[in-house]
Design a protein around this nucleic acid. Structure first.
Lengths: 66, 66
DNA sequence: GATGAATATCCCCGAAAGGGTATAATTCCA
DNA sequence: TGGAATTATACCCTTTCGGGGATATTCATC
């Protein structure tokens, strides 16, 4: 699962809207949207701010081989 | 292990210099340096370009609890 | 279909990332 | 201990990320 899908899924699990997620993580609403839409040029610190809400962070994982 | 440490470690394992790693991954030399020094505001796509050399990519992982 | 909430798309702009290059500082062998 | 290779720091410049706000568009519920 991609990061964008993962975050979207986590957000729904916690019953949050994009606006709420943005507020709680301290990033902009537009950022949350671009992130969930799979933008690849996001800044790591911002993504980490969001992931921190779920007790997670960015790390290196083995590439998915389809 | 942080991403910066991880990449530095991987690079050494493969016997590459920062310059070689930059050339092979298609990012700038300065980027490689900032990355290995733990800069937190890096762009995900660039980091992924480097990780791809090692068959890895960025993903969400549980936060390290010290 | 109507109403309202949630999400997506577009604009402008300041701040900063990343590239290149040049120059220190460091490391590492011979 | 000297010198080459590697790594770190500093500067300028272009690109673009990310914020905010305004405007669609989609979605759910009645």
């Amino acid at each position: 699962m991609s990061i964008s899908e993962h975050i979207k899924s986590k957000r729904k699990t916690y019953g949050l809207t994009q606006t709420e997620l943005a507020e709680r993580s301290g990033v902009g609403l537009r950022f949350v949207r671009e992130m969930e839409q799979g933008k690849s040029t996001l800044r790591m610190d911002k993504v980490n701010q969001v992931l921190a809400l779920f007790g997670e962070e960015l790390g290196a994982v083995k590439s998915e081989v389809l």
